[in-house]
Simulated assay, not measured.
Amino acid sequence: MPINYPAVMSLREENRAFAWDERDTMLYALGVGMGSDPMDEAELRFVYERGLRVVPTFATVAAWGAGISAEQIGLDRRRTLHGEEHTRFHRPMPPSASIVADSRVVSVIDKGADKGAVVERQTTLFDAVDREPIATITRTAFARGDGGFGGPAVESALAPMRPSRAPDIMVELSTRPDLALLYRLSGDRNPLHADPGVARAAGFERPILHGLCTYGLACRAVLRAFCDYDPSALAGIGARFSAPVVPGDTIRFDLWRDGDDVFFEGRVEARDSVVMKNGHAKLS
């Protein structure tokens, strides 16, 4: 069914309730590799309940299942890719909370029948008690089979440009061969990340890592490089997923700082593959 524009722009999902506790936040932290060295006291604070800190990108799974679905918009899910993720933190993520989530469609761009569509959806998490916002997640999908519906063809705003100099710092993070199996327990049970047969049918030699797990690894790199592992120092983070990561890969994050702006890129050197582009974080 083709995208019915502009009707999709009125789609809303409001006041959907979710909750999490310390176990959920620690499980997510383990799922993005925190605590891989149990003697690293800086990362231990994210996986141990004494003085527990929360990895900011936990916001991306805290209300897993919320949002306007691909089917509601009229997208062919089989040909739709998760292209970008941007998260704004209105306050640090609490170790436990009850929240409500409001979701909407931000934009649907028609790139043409042969190029597909670009769809932006947004979900904001609010504290269930005081209704103050906690985080806003903007998720961009590249729908390769859904262009030509007659919608606007306005290009998205250009991403901020990173400095042309050599990186200010490089952070290498290794991933466990079973990391996708651990990460999926935080919400995304797509069998592409667990079932070898499903992965082969999709054209991969083995299950690949979730893009949002790589996103969490990028958040770890920024926290380590410029925040002294203090979640309150991070006001936002975003990036484009450019190539798959295989569990067991080591990702090298190149990072640049320019005032309160941090730019980053992720690369798996063993395959000479850039896996994350246009990375940008804002320090508070």
Score class of each variant (00 low, 15 high):
M1Q: 13
P2E: 12
I3W: 01
P6F: 05
M9H: 06
M9C: 07
S10E: 10
E14A: 14
N15Q: 14
W20N: 04
D21K: 14
R23W: 09
M26K: 07
L27K: 11
L27N: 11
L27C: 09
A29I: 02
L30A: 06
G33L: 02
M34E: 07
P38H: 05
M39Y: 12
E41F: 12
E41P: 03
L44G: 06
R45G: 14
R45W: 06
F46G: 07
F46N: 03
V47F: 01
G51A: 05
V55L: 09
P56Y: 06
A59P: 00
A59T: 06
T60N: 13
A63L: 05
W64R: 11
W64M: 14
A66R: 01
A66K: 01
A66W: 00
I68H: 02
S69N: 09
A70D: 14
A70Y: 13
E71D: 15
Q72D: 14
L75E: 02
L75T: 01
R77D: 10
R79D: 10
R88M: 08
F89S: 01
P94C: 06
S96Q: 14
I99N: 00
S103C: 04
V106G: 03
V106K: 00
V106A: 02
G112V: 14
V119M: 00
E120F: 00
Q122T: 08
T124L: 04
D127S: 08
V129I: 12
D130R: 07
I134L: 09
T136H: 12
I137H: 14
T138C: 03
T138E: 00
T138S: 02
R139M: 12
A141R: 11
F142N: 07
F142Q: 07
F142Y: 15
F149N: 05
F149R: 05
G150P: 13
P152I: 13
P152H: 10
R162N: 03
P163M: 09
S164R: 13
A166R: 10
L179P: 01
L179R: 00
A180R: 01
L182I: 03
Y183A: 02
A194R: 02
D195R: 04
A199Y: 01
A201K: 14
A201D: 15
E205A: 15
P207S: 05
I208Y: 03
G211S: 11
G211C: 08
L212M: 15
Y215K: 04
A218D: 14
A218Y: 10
A218V: 13
A218F: 11
C219V: 05
C219E: 00
V222A: 09
A225K: 05
P231A: 09
S232A: 15
A235K: 12
I237F: 13
I237C: 01
A243I: 10
T250R: 15
W256F: 04
F263A: 01
R267N: 08
A270I: 10
A270F: 07
A270K: 15
R271D: 10
R271W: 04
M276E: 09
